[in-house]
Amino acid sequence: MNSKLLRKGVLGIAGLAFASGVVAGPATAQAAPSVESKPVAVTVLADKVDKGTLIPHGVQGEQSRIDLDDEQVANVKAIIAATKKAGMDERAAVVAIATALQESKLVNLGHLGERNDHDSQGLFQQRPSSGWGTVEQITDPEYSTMAFLKGLKQVDGWQDMPLTEAAQTVQVSAYPFHYAQWETQAADLVAEHWNS
């Protein structure tokens, strides 16, 4: 996807970006790396969720995994609840959780002072200056998830995109391919918590 088309799509997302083109971060005009995709087995016990809906296109690249504490698990559950409230399916929850894993490791981050990336905050590192909402809103897990999902809904064909491309189209990260590494853990978390 070229950067002109990417910026145009982002600007059209429900007024989440300013008309001047200021968005959550610099867009890059890189083509997706050529990586062999293959289906991945989700490693949770339960047959609570149709596993084919979680990773329908296979994963790209090496996968990362972190141990989660109670706060991070609560944020996973909040993302899943918001996804259901938005009327979206398990795949949308996988994309949202993988995005939050990359952006904040599922920790609801406040302003980090000198270490802060512009004015990015919350689970999705959304920026008030880019129209995502107030600081209070973007540090509320339900609000920030709903804002992310609102953007995702407006990406034509997001269901048919690799996870990292769908996430990048909403987030416009300086590191667009980093989302892919969290797909397996995100799918495991959705399978574990979707019906809990």
Rank of each mutant, 00 (worst) to 15 (best):
G131T: 15
G122Y: 12
V155Q: 07
G157P: 13
G151D: 01
K150D: 04
D156F: 08
L163Q: 09
F124W: 03
T145P: 03
Q137I: 08
G131M: 15
E142K: 07
W132M: 13
K153F: 00
S130N: 14
L149W: 01
G122C: 13
E136V: 10
K150A: 08
F124G: 00
P141E: 08
Q159A: 12
V155W: 00
T139E: 15
L123P: 05
K153Q: 10
S129V: 11
G157F: 11
F124Q: 01
W132V: 03
P141S: 10
E142A: 14
T164G: 04
E142G: 03
L149Y: 00
P162W: 09
T164L: 07
Q154V: 01
K153G: 02
S130C: 15
Y143G: 07
Q125S: 10
W132C: 03
Q154R: 11
G133F: 06
V135H: 08
P162E: 13
M146Y: 01
G151I: 00
T145H: 05
Q154T: 06
F148Y: 15
L123M: 11
F148I: 08
D156G: 11
I138K: 04
Q125R: 14
K150Y: 00
M161C: 03
M161V: 02
L149I: 06
D160W: 03
K153S: 10
S130Y: 05
T145D: 04
L163W: 01
M146K: 14
E142L: 02
V155C: 03
E136Y: 05
W132Y: 13
V135T: 14
Y143C: 09
L152I: 10
W132T: 03
E142N: 05
V135W: 05
S129K: 13
G133M: 09
D160I: 02
T164D: 12
E142M: 07
S129Y: 06
T145V: 07
L123T: 10
Q125C: 09
V135N: 06
W158L: 06
G131P: 15
M161E: 14
E136P: 01
T134R: 09
W158T: 08
W158E: 02
F148N: 02
R127G: 01
W158K: 05
A147D: 06
G151H: 00
V155F: 00
V155H: 00
D140I: 03
M146H: 13
T134H: 08
G122E: 09
P141Y: 05
D156V: 12
D140N: 14
P162K: 12
R127A: 04
Q154N: 11
K150Q: 13
M161F: 08
L149P: 02
Q125I: 06
P128V: 13
K153I: 00
S129F: 06
Q159Y: 02
S129L: 07
G151T: 02
S144H: 01
T145N: 07
I138A: 07
P162Y: 11
Q137S: 12
Q126H: 14
K153M: 04
D160P: 01
D156L: 10
Q154I: 03
A147R: 15
P162L: 09
T139H: 08
G133V: 09
W158V: 10
L163Y: 03
G131D: 15
L123R: 10
E142H: 08
L152W: 06
D156I: 09
G133Q: 10
L149T: 01
L152C: 07
G133W: 05
Q137F: 08
K150V: 05
Y143P: 03
G131H: 15
V135C: 01
F148S: 02
